[in-house]
Design a protein around this nucleic acid. Structure first.
Length: 260
DNA sequence: ATGGCTAACATGGTTAGA
């Protein structure tokens, strides 16, 4: 068995967080990392700097908003940007194959507020993702779809469930959509190993959110059942959230033991 | 107490995040 370690991190601007990324990659043994909210066009993507850090990097960016990237130790093959067949003006998905595993980085829409146009876009987007994830598990078997899902799976993933009740990120329609993804044959691998409440991956910048551990667990690693069989560990790496000028999200790291 | 903070774009104040 040889370790295969994947991670996801919403960096909230790759330009601002490039030094944090360098520090993180120097501390962790990562085989594949997906980034969200890089907030830059592909022409500005720092591929050379990432190569110096030891990673092959491909991006799917746009100006100002959204944008995703896939960083891999070994070159990834069959790079696909966006959800195939789904016409989306926003750059939110990037996929590649590494070590026989299909690695798909996702940045699910925020949704802003229940009932808003952006909420409707989020639910429609999740329907498209459902079709894609069904095809992925059918065509590849060994699949991990990880990223910022912008949905807290259940109340253990919410610091104040009563205050959040019915709001965007926890609404029944969003949680039902996430449940349909899992029913395709995926596992929320953090929950496979940790059953207790209070583990979060995002904390509000305002009002001392991190200091008071007022957060949400919305950054998820969903592994196909075939891959999840090889799960060795999953953790939320809180340290980068303590660094100066941090992203509001922490990285989530999952390790699998694959046949060498 | 419906604020608080951060980033992009622009260079003041709006949009967006979650």
């Amino acid at each position: 068995m040889s370790p295969f370690t994947v991670a996801t991190w919403n960096v909230n601007s790759l330009k601002v967080r490039l030094a944090h990324l360098r520090e993180f990659l120097g501390l962790q043994a990562i085989d594949a990392l997906v980034l969200q909210e890089i907030k830059m066009e592909d022409k500005d993507f720092p591929a050379a700097a990432l190569e110096e850090m030891g990673f092959h990097a491909v991006a799917f960016g746009q100006k100002t908003y959204n944008g995703v990237a896939l960083l891999t130790r070994a070159p990834a093959t069959d790079i696909v940007r966006g959800i195939p067949g789904y016409d989306d003006p926003q750059a939110r998905v990037i996929a590649g194959t590494v070590r026989g595993v299909r690695v798909v980085g996702v940045y699910v829409p925020n949704g802003q507020a229940v009932g808003s146009d952006k909420y409707a876009y989020k639910l429609g987007w999740l329907e498209a993702l459902t079709g894609y994830m069904q095809a992925l598990v059918r065509d590849h078997g060994q699949v991990v779809v990880l990223g910022d899902y912008n949905i807290a799976p259940d109340d253990r993933d919410v610091h104040d469930p009563a205050a959040w009740a019915g709001q965007v990120h926890v609404s029944p329609a969003e949680r039902a959509a996430l449940g349909r993804l899992l029913e395709l044959g995926y596992r929320d691998v953090f929950r496979e190993l940790h059953a207790d409440a209070g583990h979060y991956s995002w904390w509000d910048y305002r009002a001392g959110g991190f200091r008071r551990n007022h957060g949400l667990r919305i950054d998820l690693v969903l592994a196909s059942t075939a891959l999840a069989r090889h799960l060795q560990g999953c953790r939320i790496e809180r340290e980068p959230r303590t660094w100066e000028r941090p992203s509001d999200h922490a990285p989530v790291i999952a390790e699998f033991g694959l046949p060498a």
